[in-house]
């Protein structure tokens, strides 16, 4: 079944001219161990995965970078934890130096309680990073106007949240996600809030080009099984989006012939 689905979705995800066979971008936060993360990443089929930048811990054992290299998964550094444009710029520059990539998932949050993006600092950071030559993928609110401003600033994609990071609340404002998709001239990646497979499928049905998730998989009881579910959900949602769903009706529409019924 997997093979059939994969062949049906032959159109790759294109971001900044780079093609990805999988439309599922994975995060790495929350995994109980590198071994479990490895199983989940394999099951997800992802080709692009995000990592955070932190002070070197001399006691740390094992490296997520080695894991991604071994799995041939492209690394997408993020600026998780940054609160200002200046912090995000320095973090991104350090990531570029450390990881030899100019791609960055730009994250500038307003506070620790909600982890919601600070749109003012985010836009300022996006402008700085684009000017500095980065391929910028900003994590943003589900606000169509902010998404448009980020695109105008030169971002290579926009990544609206479905709901707060790690909440598992799914997509709280599908209408706004649809508006963002309709207006966007760059790929739209649903980022954050996914709880289960139907959330990922919905994101794709709404027309998103990809889904980025971490907690839904890494904190699931069986991360590898959930990763497989997400892989199929993203494919299913993508196929459904392209297949042209039936209109929603308020009353039944017979699927059997209405003539030729027996008469008694």
């Amino acid at each position: 079944m997997t093979q059939i689905a994969v062949q049906a979705d032959i159109e790759p995800l294109l971001i900044a001219g780079r093609a990805f066979g999988s439309r599922l971008i994975m995060g790495t936060g929350g995994a109980p161990s590198l071994e479990i993360l490895e199983q989940a990443l394999i099951a997800s089929g992802t080709e692009l995965t995000t990592v955070a930048m932190r002070r070197v811990d001399p006691a740390a054992r094992g490296s997520v970078l080695d894991l991604l290299r071994d799995l041939r998964i492209a690394v997408l550094p993020n600026t998780a934890g940054c609160r200002t444009a200046g912090e995000a710029l320095l973090t991104a520059r350090l990531a570029r130096e450390a990881l030899d990539t100019d791609w960055v998932k730009l994250e500038v949050i307003g506070d620790e309680r909600t982890l919601l993006p600070d749109p003012v600092e985010l836009l300022a950071a996006a402008e700085l990073l684009v000017a500095d030559g980065f391929v910028v993928l900003p994590y943003t609110n589900d606000d169509p106007i902010v998404a448009r401003r980020l695109e105008q600033a030169g971002c290579a994609a926009v990544m609206p949240l479905g709901s707060p990071i790690g909440s598992g609340l799914g997509i709280r404002n599908p209408h706004n996600i649809r508006l963002i998709v309709q207006d966007a001239g760059v790929p739209v990646v649903l980022d954050a809030g996914i709880g289960t497979a139907s959330d990922a499928a919905l994101a794709m049905e709404l027309g998103c080009d990809a889904v980025l998730l971490a907690s839904a998989v890494t904190r699931a009881a069986d991360p590898a099984a959930m990763a497989g579910a997400m892989r199929h959900a993203v494919l299913a949602g993508r196929l459904a989006h392209g297949a042209g769903r039936i209109p929603i009706r308020t009353r039944a529409e017979a699927s059997s012939p209405v003539t030729g019924l027996l008469q008694q």
């Binding site: 790495t28 990592v51 993020n78």
Partner: peptide, 27 residues
């Protein structure tokens, strides 16, 4: 940022703040 190629030539001064970062699980 101090580029890797300059690590061995940049000497430290008093009260300098140095950050040494790497990639970890997160985000």
């Amino acid at each position: 940022v101090v580029p890797r190629a300059r690590w061995s030539v940049v000497q430290l001064g008093e009260d300098d703040r140095i950050e040494v970062l790497t990639a970890v699980q997160g985000g």
